[in-house]
Simulated assay, not measured.
Amino acid sequence: MTSAGLAMHTVRLNALVIDARREGRRALLTVRGELVHGGTDTLGDALAALPPGITAIELDVAGVSFLDTTGLACLDLLNEYGGQHGVRVTTHGWRGQPRRVLELVGLDTTDTPRTGGTAGFADLPPRTASAVARERAEQLDMLRMEIAQLRQALDSRPVIDQARGVLMAAHGCTPDQAWEILREASQHSNVKLHRIAAAITASASPGGPPPPEPLRRALRTAVAHHVP
């Protein structure tokens, strides 16, 4: 069973796959792919498909190649399922980037089975119970910000490339000069670069609106600095 909810910005296109088999009253789930947006739906479907009489669930996550903050919801789903059904849930095999993310938020990544009727992560202390966990949470927030900035950069790239093409055609400049014009105009006008690029691209279309006057002034100044 595979996830149909791939993230819009995913580059890897490595869908989550969960293979399930039963050994007595244990369910063995082998997880492969990425725990990202949509992963909870796939995990929820796998749990819902388990036959009655299961008293323990073991997840082999060695095949999980990537984990983001939305994928952490899968652990909450495991806790909830274990508590509601009185099923002991354990995971093993965390490694690579997923293991580092779990460590950043203060979760235990050891393979030691836990006792009791709740999921494997249910008896962990609060994630911010220590200075180390707080520091890791702050680092995770920084990672989230960097990911958001990278996604915005990827989204903005096409319109920025189009704007560079417009500037190159209008002023006979090189690609590097066009980039410097955009960057300097952004600094002088205090307008984000992708918004400047969108205004330039829109103005180049038939009947397109010209950029606002403050932006035109910033562009003229930047052109004068970078185009002989």
Score class of each variant (00 low, 15 high):
61 V>F: 08
192 K>D: 10
204 A>Y: 03
164 R>K: 15
17 V>I: 08
154 L>Q: 15
10 T>K: 00
128 T>G: 12
123 D>R: 12
45 D>H: 01
183 R>P: 00
213 E>I: 11
228 P>Q: 00
105 V>S: 04
86 G>W: 05
14 N>V: 13
16 L>K: 05
224 A>Q: 12
192 K>G: 05
39 G>W: 07
96 G>P: 09
119 A>D: 13
51 P>Q: 11
64 V>E: 05
40 T>K: 14
84 Q>E: 15
213 E>G: 02
142 M>F: 03
146 E>P: 01
213 E>Q: 14
64 V>C: 05
158 P>Y: 06
37 H>C: 02
148 A>G: 07
110 T>N: 08
191 V>N: 07
73 A>K: 14
131 A>V: 15
1 M>G: 15
204 A>E: 04
191 V>A: 06
93 G>S: 09
162 Q>K: 14
202 A>W: 01
28 L>I: 11
74 C>R: 09
181 I>H: 04
140 L>F: 14
168 M>R: 14
167 L>D: 04
91 T>R: 12
37 H>Y: 11
187 Q>W: 03
196 I>W: 05
25 R>M: 09
121 F>L: 12
39 G>D: 04
61 V>P: 00
77 L>Q: 14
23 E>K: 07
145 M>Y: 08
61 V>E: 05
207 G>P: 12
79 N>L: 07
28 L>T: 02
199 A>R: 04
159 V>L: 01
120 G>R: 06
123 D>H: 08
67 L>A: 06
10 T>V: 10
191 V>R: 15
101 V>S: 08
31 V>K: 10
185 A>C: 04
86 G>M: 03
15 A>R: 13
75 L>E: 05
127 R>E: 08
68 D>T: 05
172 G>L: 08
205 S>P: 00
45 D>E: 15
125 P>L: 05
80 E>N: 07
93 G>K: 09
35 L>M: 14
109 T>F: 01
176 D>K: 06
17 V>Y: 09
221 T>D: 10
51 P>W: 03
169 A>I: 01
57 I>C: 15
215 L>T: 09
196 I>P: 10
206 P>E: 09
100 R>F: 04
58 E>H: 15
221 T>R: 06
202 A>F: 02
104 L>P: 03
94 W>M: 08
144 R>K: 11
210 P>T: 10
11 V>N: 08
44 G>C: 06
159 V>S: 04
85 H>C: 10
205 S>W: 06
223 V>K: 02
21 R>H: 14
15 A>Y: 02
216 R>M: 10
3 S>C: 03
86 G>Q: 10
202 A>V: 02
109 T>E: 07
227 V>N: 09
102 L>Q: 08
134 R>F: 05
96 G>S: 12
153 A>H: 12
82 G>V: 08
16 L>G: 07
106 G>H: 00
225 H>A: 15
132 V>I: 11
208 G>K: 05
48 A>D: 15
226 H>R: 13
122 A>P: 09
217 R>I: 11
199 A>W: 03
156 S>C: 09
